[in-house]
Write a protein that binds this DNA or RNA. Structure first.
Lengths: 335, 335
DNA sequence: GTGAAAGCGCTAACAG
DNA sequence: CTGTTAGCGCTTTCAC
């Protein structure tokens, strides 16, 4: 069978340069000295033929594919492109490419994605899911492929973990509100406090406690992790006898919804109601008033993850690590 | 050398099932009939061993990698994740994965990305760049790898092209403004009318002409393709003696900047100044007033591209195609 | 500093 | 319907 494009192979380069394929290989990979003169002839031959090493063949032989798998819920969620960029900007220069798979947060798809990564013989996997199914990672671990989990609590499986300081960030948010004189501070959460949201609630509670503000009635409402959810949360809160004077939302989209509801109800932000978000997605600067929020450094998370993966791939051992990326308060107009 | 994880190979499956590796291969790929009984034994063996075919080996042998390359400026630009999703949603079920490379619009990186795709023996390439360098694609074409260009004008190289109807969209936008009574309609463009922007300007001019509105003085301003650029464009326009009553911007971020400037200057939108964008990024619904814009269907573009690629890979020949994806007017509040 | 030969895991002739 | 054999393009012993 005629193979695609009939590209030059290493043997042709060797022939043209008057050396063996072995020497060409070593000239290219630097695993063994090659004389300057030989190297020059090889490079000339490569240029003349337009030779490009076949990464697939190399991968098969070497047991490495120079590929890492990134398993995420949805690249369309603005957090992940930034994270992916961070990963790539570290891994790219090291010669790795990424295969990105979207799971929509569906467990079966997550499992299938991991299976695929094993089949593809990836050299590492970055796995970002809310619902942590530790055992779903087992096949990857068995295949001895380094895995880094993104987000979530410390893993039981002993895999590396990179996540932002959700609890600390929420604490800082609430401190900021308290500092600005707000006292009845609500938290608008998703249906359940799952994933990062759980830690954000924890930070919220901790900050209230440390300020001597006891838990207040009905100040944590559960809705959806969406714009409509945020709006709905505010609706719910202001129907109560004791209204909040500030709301912290589990993410920015919810906070934007909160802003919608406030405007709808004629509430001035931040005078009648302060609103804070979490994540600092680009949209936070698009709304009016601009959103005060906690930056969730997606890019740094991606980069830290990539570095960890590189270390593992290169056999820099050590016990499983947990890397916590600090968040950062971003003051704008809404609180 | 001990290979990673010592995963079961096809031979082990064959042995356990009491058949040859060939038969296992065929049972898996369905290229040749396998008796029901044999197939059952093979499947049992696969399940027992947890066997997963090695895609890299398969790729080397078959000359296909089941991978396609997506070369884009920046996954962080909100247009591309949606496009990538569209590509994946078509290609994924067909067994393909994507490698995404960001070029930042830098020509050397574009070339390097294409080289890499050839090295990786991808089965197809989707190439999205503003600055069309037809000859940069030549190595890929020589390697007989199907390429689909995304965006830009009809290619001279004879490669497939998928793009949205930028000219028609702009025409529709201007018609909408005219229909709503606006007559002094400006266009805020980037530094040069490059890429899609060129066609958007053309559509703008065409619509004015067809409405019998001759070209007006200083109604096309050049700034940056950014939020600040849009704001700057409005500033420039309203300093003129004859102000526009509407502006069409080359993209949504610019339109959002235009909204900023209007607010700053106390101009009511759309009463004093109508504002329209282009692309319908998510942010368009985030601003106040919400942006009336032209939806640039990234997802459809990605899906059409993927289908075209599949056709080419499967040898469904035919001459190079140009697929134009229609845009759609999205009426909201700003015009 | 260089080569010959073996083989990564799989699929596709060819042969029955 | 099934098996044997060769080989995809490369890297890596082992030998010189």
């Amino acid at each position: 069978m005629a193979f695609r494009g009939d590209r030059p192979r290493i043997g042709q380069v060797a022939q043209l340069a008057g050396v063996s394929a072995t020497t060409v290989s070593h000239a290219l990979n630097g695993r063994r000295p090659v004389s300057a003169e030989t190297r020059r002839r090889i490079m000339d031959a490569i240029a003349e033929l337009g030779y490009r090493p076949n990464v697939v063949a190399r991968g098969l032989r070497a047991g490495r594919s120079l590929t890492i798998g990134l398993v995420i819920p949805d690249i369309t969620n603005p957090f992940y492109p930034v994270l992916a960029r961070g990963v790539q900007d570290v891994l790219g220069p090291a010669g790795y490419d990424e295969i990105i798979t979207n799971t929509n947060g569906v467990r079966d798809l997550e499992r299938a994605a991991l299976d695929k990564m094993i089949s593809r013989q990836v050299d590492g996997v970055a796995f970002a899911v809310f619902h942590t199914h530790a055992d779903d990672l087992q096949p990857v671990i068995d295949a001895q492929i380094p895995v880094v989990r993104l987000g979530g609590r410390a893993a039981q499986t002993g895999v590396d973990l990179v996540h932002s300081d959700d609890e600390g960030g929420a604490r800082e948010a609430v401190r900021h509100l308290i500092h600005n004189g707000y006292r009845r501070i609500a938290f608008i959460c998703g249906p359940a406090a799952e994933g990062p949201a759980a830690e954000r609630v924890a930070g919220y509670r901790a900050a209230l406690a440390e300020a001597g503000i006891g838990p207040q009635q009905n100040m944590v409402v559960h809705t959806d992790f969406s714009r409509a959810g945020g709006a709905h949360g505010v609706e719910k809160l202001i129907r109560q006898r004791k209204r909040p004077d500030a709301v912290l939302c589990a993410n920015d989209m919810m906070a934007i919804g909160a802003l919608d509801a406030a405007r709808e109800r004629g509430l001035r932000v931040p005078d009648d109601l302060a609103v804070m978000g979490f994540d600092d997605i680009e949209a936070a600067t698009l709304v009016t008033p601009q959103l005060t929020t906690i930056a969730n450094p997606a890019r740094e998370i991606g980069m830290a993850c990539a570095r960890l993966l590189l270390d593992r791939i290169n056999g820099v051992a050590g016990p499983p690590k947990e890397i916590v990326i600090p968040t950062r308060l971003v003051r704008r107009q809404s609180a």
